[in-house]
Write a protein that binds this DNA or RNA. Structure first.
Lengths: 170, 170
DNA sequence: CTGATTGCAAACACTTTGCAGCAGA
DNA sequence: TCTGCTGCAAAGTGTTTGCAATCAG
């Protein structure tokens, strides 16, 4: 029995990996506004700014870093509003929240994407996002066996990347 | 684009599902003692009690519920010691920590088990643990493509269980 | 107009940590 | 004896919430 891997602190600090393209603002803003309208919520300047900032993010990001982005761009942005908006963006199907540890959570744009899955290097903390058709098929198969209707999934694979292996030998 | 599923509060409260058999104390205690000795740590009565309590758990559990178990059994057990011991049990490869949300974490005995994967009902909050050989093969394949050495993985599938479907129709 | 929204700061809740006394090996 | 361990309470930290003023529709 081997020692159970633990997520390294480095992951909490700065998850990095292949950087997917930035998502386009217009169509997602339309989705957001439709959602807000349906829920009798309002489209405020703050929400627009936050959505813009979210869409400028590539890959995983943290609430705090989003707030920093906004401040750097000269916009006021209270943590509270950022969190509240991130929550709405999830409900609108634009974002999803990912949990790698119990300290904080990460967010990621999902609208129009398929990547739900991560390769996480236990040595360097690097996170690579990927998507697998085979995995989705297997997921559906497993769901059928249990009578589940699949909605979504999330796979985290922990391992050692080539760089991590090199670093450990070095 | 469908609305992004969010983990229901019920999951945070009382994850339940198929109950795997309780793990045997003796062999795992031996593993723990070996680990402690190797790390120049001590095998204390508190650690023994906590390991026992852990092994009486079936499926996922929370640190707090473990502390309650201990108190109910008439043992003093400070949160601090429980957390510290849970951490050692992870390092010893006996436990693993699972993150479903950012509020708290769950623990699960993994020594000698293969089940790393969960089917989570978004309607009822029920969690079913399962293990799939095909998934492990697919994982290894994906790792090969990225030059990773796989260490472990975790798959969370969100969906609607038969019971949930019935409840939603009712 | 009227109810939703915002920023602020206080509140939360799980977890970690500092410390002084205690106890395995 | 010599470290490591324990319980306690305080600190830590990402996130949430109450509230009064403000604003979108």
């Amino acid at each position: 029995m081997s020692e159970q891997p633990r997520i390294l602190p480095s992951i909490r600090k700065a998850p990095a990996g292949r950087q997917p393209a930035v998502a386009p603002y217009e169509p997602l803003c339309a989705i957001f506004r439709r959602y807000l309208h349906k829920e009798k919520l309002k489209f405020t300047p703050e929400r627009a700014l936050i959505l813009e900032a979210v869409l400028r993010k590539t890959g995983l990001f943290q609430a705090e870093s989003l707030t920093e982005d906004l401040r750097r761009a000269g916009h006021r942005a209270s943590r509270a509003t950022v969190y509240r908006t991130l929550s709405h963006l999830q409900d609108a199907g634009i974002l999803k929240q990912v949990f790698f540890d119990n300290k904080q959570s990460y967010f990621e744009v999902v609208a129009g994407r398929q990547a739900n899955d991560y390769l996480i290097c236990l040595s360097t903390g690097k996170v690579i996002e990927f998507s697998s058709q085979k995995l989705r098929q297997l997921r559906d198969e497993i769901c059928r066996e249990h009578g589940f209707d699949p909605v979504s999934h999330q796979l985290h694979i922990y391992g050692i990347s080539p760089e991590g292996r090199a670093a450990e030998k070095g």
